[in-house]
Design a protein around this nucleic acid. Structure first.
Lengths: 196, 196
DNA sequence: GGTTGAATTGAACAATTGTTCAGTCAAACA
DNA sequence: TGTTTGACTGAACAATTGTTCAATTCAACC
């Protein structure tokens, strides 16, 4: 019937995704078995198939949810019209904050692309492309305004995103540098890299 | 006794590594079976164990060989003493060229770290650290010379390497931009990003 | 309290995994 | 030519894989 809050299904579903995210990020998609995920959830492996089509569909769902959240958060936080340099700084800060907040999802979305079927891969690739286009639009605006010198906006967008996302590979909360300080330094490098 | 050139062993050994590199890069370490590698080499799976200890040792060998070649090539190409900006440009060009030349090895060395045993991981991590230190030394020199503004040399080194390595994710030979043009644009962004 | 229906179990499946090893082969030496 | 020696085969191994499904459990309804 209508599931009441607290029913088994409403608990198992989210926990399945949390466990899969953590395990895939830690050990890699191919190295994690459905039984390991099930054990983490506290359930037998067969029960997982009430919530997913198959293992690969689970990976796809995690990736898509991540990228859709990325695009939605960006759309919600993006300031309307502003000079390109301000929009660029806003993008850089948003990107770093968003990515540092969910390292597991970021890791999976970048590393497990080859485990997707071609159809699923195309969907994920298109979502990522939409995000890259957001940055590229800012750079193009800056170029046209004359406030930036960007000979190739596509290349520059890829380069800046790679640089910003790289923060996930080394930053650890409570380390030598605070998140705010890291953000400031990255923003400075980004700004200068495309300066006219 | 002494193996003659062209003996089976002298052919199988290198081909094993070539096949493993290609397959690991394409499908991921965990998703490739020893039998797939053996088939690619034209041999039965058991024969591979004449050349490797186990699957994970094979992965480790590939990574170590890659990073040692990176360090050796850098040491051989590095100009003696020069102003920091010139050394930085040299590093950027070297890095892009080296990485674009061997995308499979680069991919593996960045993506399959979690499949290494702790002992093997420590070795790989140390090698990578040595390379990062090479760039950091240049940035520190630039900061001391006054020719660069780098508030945190370690952070900047990580950021620049991430940006430069990112070229591998999108660049395709014969595409819109030539390798030389890509190199020039990246060098320009790198130079400006740390400019004073 | 009994009925319903979804959530879960637990066993089963065929296939595949990394690795070992006794036997076979073929090329290099004497 | 016969011997030696390393490379390779092919079968075997126990373990594990993703996935299915009849049977069971258990909470929500009448």
């Amino acid at each position: 019937m209508a599931r009441k809050p607290g029913s088994r299904a409403e608990i198992t579903g989210p926990r399945l995704r949390e466990a899969a995210l953590r395990l895939f990020a830690r050990h890699g998609y191919a190295a994690v078995s459905m039984r390991q995920i099930a054990a983490e959830v506290g359930v037998q492996a067969g029960a997982l198939y009430q919530y997913i089509d198959d293992k690969q569909g689970l990976l796809f769902d995690l990736m898509r949810a991540h990228l859709e959240e990325l695009l939605a958060d960006w759309a919600a936080s993006s300031p309307p019209a502003a000079p390109a340099p301000a929009r660029l700084e806003h993008f850089a800060r948003f990107h770093i904050r968003f990515h540092l907040t969910r390292p597991d999802a970021v890791f999976i979305a970048y590393m497990e692309l080859r485990n997707l079927s071609p159809a699923h891969f195309a969907v994920i690739e298109a979502l990522r492309r939409r995000y890259e286009d957001e940055l590229e639009a800012i750079l193009r605006a800056g170029q046209e305004e004359g406030s930036m010198a960007v000979p190739d906006t596509k290349l520059a967008a890829m380069a800046l995103i790679a640089m910003l996302t790289g923060v996930n590979t080394w930053f650890r909360e409570g380390g030598r540098l605070s998140r705010e300080r890291v953000e400031d330094i990255y923003v400075d490098m980004v700004r200068k890299a495309v300066a006219g």
